[in-house]
């Protein structure tokens, strides 16, 4: 089995509310690259949360790296999570730690040698253009800078699965391009990447596959330029309408 992620008939509801996700079934191969699209409130963040084990499904089967998560004992979850890098929609940087220490966190929880931590973290922060902000607290950074710290933290330990929720939402096109390049490089090294985004142009120009989330269900669009063009268009129709208004 080469699936990094497999969902079978997964349903998710919050409390007694309606099912946000119903009957979601799909699988992601190792080394794959997908954009996750869907209208606001469609459940993109919820789907990602299931994938990074922040949320348990109400029903259905989920496996990560070939392991059924419902039967994985608690003490083995950190092992799974270390293979997953996450860029949260709201960043979730630790406010009391510097940019450097935030990015270092995934290495420190695996008790990496401090000299290695320093080398890797400095290199990566320089790469995302934050060489001069290593010691800054998140609250003193701009939204885009915080986002880059969050991304650096997600990729520092070279995860097998990278999940990013709107990672280019707060940065200009130049930085967005750089970040996409970073994700691309990681992908080339074998990391499966899932990026939730509202950025239609970004998805179009990449030519990558799309996970489309609508009405609580997921469909994989193989080729948005051709066969699946109409379906892809429908996702953003509502958004475009809003912009026009």
């Amino acid at each position: 089995m080469n699936d990094v992620v497999r969902f079978e008939s997964v349903g998710l509801r919050y409390g007694l509310g309606p099912e946000v996700l119903q009957d979601v079934s799909f699988s992601l191969d190792s080394g794959s690259f997908h954009f996750l699209v869907g209208a606001s409130g469609a459940g993109k963040s919820s789907l990602l949360r299931l994938m990074y084990l922040a949320q348990r499904p109400s029903r259905g089967y989920i496996s990560l790296f070939g392991r059924d998560i419902s039967t994985t004992p608690r003490h083995e979850l950190p092992g799974l999570r270390r293979k997953i890098g996450v860029v949260f929609q709201e960043f979730r940087l630790l406010p009391h730690l510097s940019a450097f220490d935030n990015v270092a966190l995934p290495l420190r929880v695996v008790k990496a040698r401090e000299s290695e931590v320093k080398r890797h973290v400095e290199e990566l922060l320089a790469w995302v253009g934050l060489k001069d902000h290593m010691k800054a607290r998140p609250s003193t950074l701009s939204g885009g800078q915080q986002q880059r710290v969050a991304i650096a933290r997600a990729v520092i330990a070279k995860p097998k699965l990278l999940l990013a929720d709107e990672p280019t939402g707060n940065v200009d096109d130049h930085i967005a391009g750089r970040l996409m390049h970073l994700f691309g490089e990681l992908n080339k090294l074998g990391t499966s990447v899932v990026i939730a985004t509202h950025n239609e142009a970004l998805v179009r120009s990449s030519g990558k596959r799309v996970l489309k989330l609508a009405d609580g269900e997921v469909r994989i669009l193989e080729n948005i330029a051709d066969d699946d063009a109409d379906e892809f268009d429908s996702v953003f129709a509502a958004d475009r309408g809003r912009v026009l208004l």
Partner: peptide
């Protein structure tokens, strides 16, 4: 870009701001 996972040694860091609360 090559980020290797460093080898393990015991290293302690207070990641939680417990001291300040």
């Amino acid at each position: 870009m090559k980020f290797r996972l460093p080898t393990r040694i015991d290293w302690r860091t207070p990641d939680l701001p417990i001291a300040q609360d």
